[in-house]
Design a binder for these strands. Structure first.
Lengths: 249, 249
DNA sequence: ATAAAAATTGCAAAAAAACGCAAATACCCT
DNA sequence: AGGGTATTTGCGTTTTTTTGCAATTTTTAT
């Protein structure tokens, strides 16, 4: 096998799988690992791939990674937030959970809006407090330090006493079969109650969390009224949810 | 699985869920927990996540606007805070009101202290949350925007259910005749209840507020156990309070 | 206070990389 | 054509990296 052929083969594999392993290439091209290493070395010097211990990665690897981390995510949360605030009307009582998306919504609330927000999330409450016309009610209980929200029996019993018009749920995982799922028992219980006591339930999430699930159920698909992601409502991935009667925004 | 892949996977999970557990990652990536720990270690050294016992937390949710050293505090309040923290012992349940002095105390808590703090003050709660070993319980109710604390019937009834060892009261006015006084009805009621349910009551205030009074009484002089100001305990202005049986610190 | 879980440390085996070298091959020139 | 040169390739050895394991300490939960 000629060097050029090998290079082409490697690049093709790389485009296909975004990564290649030295030993795999060695056996599939029937050359020694040394040769593969030298090939990777050259391609790396040409800037066509990223050489790492054990193989190489495609250039898009870092891109995808960084962009989703620093750029993509905040922007998509802003998009979600701007769609979400349109559901809130003057005089409404709004229950919200925690999470970065919920905080983003809080930052996007129009300044003239007059409403009452009820939440167990400290970061969200801070944003609500900064708003001129919004009343903020904190759900008391012990604070979970990692998520910075209150949760526990007391929080649940308080939520039970509320009849909110709208409930915004920042969610960790959602799929058709399991519904909205969590990995923290206390949080799941509180959210469950939020769903139960609200007229309309709005789930907000970046699309990456669609079709994933975790051990504890918060609510079933049937209990959700709206689903907001950064994608266009007619996106293919959202259609199964639409079929279940959820309004996609 | 390549190391870089694992790192990407971890960061992705972290962006999605804001926290990751070592053992979960270990099983989902099919490597030993040691390897996961080393990965987290490296990512932590790169400043891309916060490593904690059992896993890691995402950067986005932490620190951002929760820095405890935002601005300098007046020296007098620092002095008060340093005297105040000496009263707190491991295992105690501590009720605190709001106010800048209370926040200053929160910032001065020794890192090894293990205690439970109960408060309706959002700024104070934020500081308590930043502490490694402190449990924080928020008293729920409507937030008063100017003072950033919760107050109302619900808050009062919750405070009633607590039997705290210590109560720190940031006060607005105090004099021998009227005791501790306030100008906000709701706040006064909540504080009243805090005083009633705590074993020991500690009033903290800068000396300017000594011998002033406001319309609504929070508690009488006789209910106070400790009074902390930035002044030396033998200062002349404090002697009348000492005579009333208050321990001046 | 005690038991369980997780972190740290040191270590050793395995995998991969680096390096030098020699054989094989390709290339160039007269 | 053929000799000299350069390039390529594979091999053995050494070095580095990675990984998992065991023993110990630290942290956390009960």
């Amino acid at each position: 096998m000629l060097k050029q052929e090998r290079h082409a083969f490697i690049m093709r594999q790389l485009n296909l799988h975004n990564k290649v392993l030295s030993n795999t290439l060695s056996s599939s091209m029937h050359v020694s690992e040394d040769t593969v290493r030298r090939d990777l070395q050259e391609l790396s010097e040409e800037g066509r791939l990223i050489k790492v211990h054990g193989g190489a990665l495609s250039l898009s690897f870092n891109d995808a990674h960084f962009s989703s981390e620093k750029f993509y995510s905040p922007k998509s949360k802003r998009i979600i937030a701007e769609k979400a605030v349109k559901l809130i009307q003057n005089g409404m009582f709004v229950l919200t959970s925690g999470g970065t998306t919920i905080v983003e919504i809080a930052k996007c609330l129009p300044p003239q809006l007059k409403a009452t927000f009820i939440t167990g999330s400290i970061p969200a409450a801070i944003e609500y407090m900064a708003h001129p016309h919004i009343d903020v009610i904190i759900i008391g209980d012990k604070i979970l330090k990692d998520s910075k929200i209150t949760a526990g029996a007391e929080a649940i019993s308080k939520v039970k006493q509320i009849n909110a018009n709208l409930c915004f749920l920042g969610i960790n995982a959602i799929d058709i079969e399991h519904g909205v799922t969590e990995n923290d028992w206390d949080v799941a219980q509180v959210k469950k109650e939020m769903v139960a006591t609200s007229e309309k339930v709005v789930c907000v999430t970046i699309s990456e969390k669609l079709n994933t699930y975790q051990p504890l159920q918060t609510c079933s698909i049937g209990q959700i009224n709206y689903l907001i992601t950064e994608l266009e409502p007619d996106n293919k991935i959202l259609q199964p949810y639409k079929k279940q009667g959820i309004i996609i925004i």
